[in-house]
Nucleic acid binder design. Structure first.
Lengths: 133, 133
DNA sequence: CCTTGACCCTGTAGTTGCTACAGGGTGCAT
DNA sequence: ATGCACCCTGTAGCAACTACAGGGTCAAGG
């Protein structure tokens, strides 16, 4: 590998991404295909490292690959207003809020079910009862 | 369809389940295969209705199909202790708790990012900045 | 010079829990 | 007899990876 270029494994280590995942991102067009060495190895640049870091950070924050694709496209138009970006982020926040409250409702039900159970036999298990029609 | 038997569409309506989903549950062995009419239609009994209701209720509470399979198996051994059931439910509760706190952490980060953004141009968007390396 | 081992390549299939067809058959009412 | 709602099988698609199989490449050590 030439100086200034990274092998796929290096890129993976630096971004905490599995090699297969990087190839997957390339296949679906999220990460551009890098140049190849004479031995047909992918040779990544610092630019790729930046993009992939961005992608991984956004994934960690729960953005979908489609949302990330949009964010990446938008982030290249430096002079545009960032309203669209704000919109994506706010939509995502709303989704997260919804998921949290769904899970909290579910948690209450589960917890109620569990605290009812005296742990005798299955025949009088309140958990099974709660699930049965 | 004979009296006391349900067609797949009826079963679906009564349990709020898509017909394809019911066939899927049969394929993966979660719901037993019903008898067939002379015309090769599935003919479900009240027993199937009970099982499917159980499955759907458990799904609504976020149990995985594997967990539900275990719950169904256990719920048939009426005389056994219900410890194992309790364990599955508690494991699931712990998972839900973990998901909630992950989402809450994520929510804080997202919210912070969004409140920083003045909505000028992309070039000085705090959201993009927060995601960039 | 040769071998070993770590790395890389492509291509395909599996995961979870469904959902959506395509291309046909059944059953009942008009 | 014909229209229509319903049923059948089988296959492929979704998200976002993950896990092989079956090979090729490259640098270091003997």
């Amino acid at each position: 590998m030439q100086a200034g270029h990274l092998a796929i494994g290096d890129l993976g280590r630096q971004t905490d991404t599995k090699v297969e995942t990087i190839r997957y991102y390339e296949r679906i067009g999220l990460l551009s295909a890098p140049a190849r060495t004479p031995g047909n190895y992918r040779a990544y640049t610092a630019e790729h490292l930046n993009r992939l870091s961005f992608i991984r950070r956004a994934r960690d924050l729960g953005f979908s690959l489609d949302q990330i694709r949009a964010l990446l496209d938008l982030s290249d138009e430096r002079e545009r207003s960032c309203d669209a970006i704000d919109t994506i982020a706010k939509q995502h926040l709303a989704e997260v809020d919804r998921k949290i409250s769904d899970l909290q409702a579910l948690r209450r039900e589960l917890n109620h079910m569990i605290t009812q159970c005296d742990c005798g036999t299955v025949a009088d298990c309140r958990i099974i009862e709660a699930l049965s029609p």
